[in-house]
Amino acid sequence: MSPNSAGLAKKMGYTNVHVMLEGVPGWKKAGKSVVASEKLVQTGNIVLLDLRSKAEYEAGHIPKAHNIPMAALAEKEDSLPIKAPIVVYANSFVEAQQGYNLIKKWGAKTGSIWPGGVNSWTATGKKLATGPTPASITWVRELEKGEVGVAEFKKAMEGGGNQVILDVRTKDEVQTGAFKNSISIPLDQIEKRLGELPKGKEMLIHCSTGARAEMAKNALDKAGMKSRILRADVECEQGKCEIKD
């Protein structure tokens, strides 16, 4: 992508054009942080963390922010929804970076810093909120394109509708339990066995996390078959399966 754009710039007459091939992954590997855009902080489905002291937070914070003072952050691992994009801010970039690094260590895949904290927020005329922090942090993931929600998936188990569940786990995994109204085709056989799927139905694909389901969806897409995936943990034991969102 970026080499293409650089080539275009070169054609436009720019003479001093570089590409950082390592991109964002390389930047992060070098121990550097990425920053959030104003739009994300304003309207994104994120968890915004204010790492300043309680007094500073209550006197004025960015709307929707939760307060966990930096000194207390280390004990708060369990109260953070680690799957959420977490954006942090503090009084300084360095302090925000410390918080960000800690959260990243806990396994957060998406996270960034709002540089400049409350000052860069009010600098463009936006207002701060005041008062105590909400009692708990809640975050609900929004379904991405091509995903099916847990409620709709459960309904499809009852059958009768226009949807069929496609289980792409291995044979061994299926032995521990499977959903009603489901067809089992392990991922590594999916391409050869597409003909076994009922025609004209929407396939709701699941595995044990969503990763293999996504790969299977690629094969169904390629064959022009309608499908969505369940991106949730599926755990089966003694014939019973549970979905953990």
């Binding site: 970026s2 007459g13 950082m20």
Partner: peptide, 24 residues
């Protein structure tokens, strides 16, 4: 793209640095 880059001919030697999501 041209609309977003400095259009002044004198700035054509300005250093442009592009990046994306890795080696793709």
């Amino acid at each position: 793209g041209a609309a977003y880059l400095p259009g002044d001919a004198k700035l054509k030697d300005l250093q442009l640095i592009f990046y994306c999501g890795g080696y793709t």
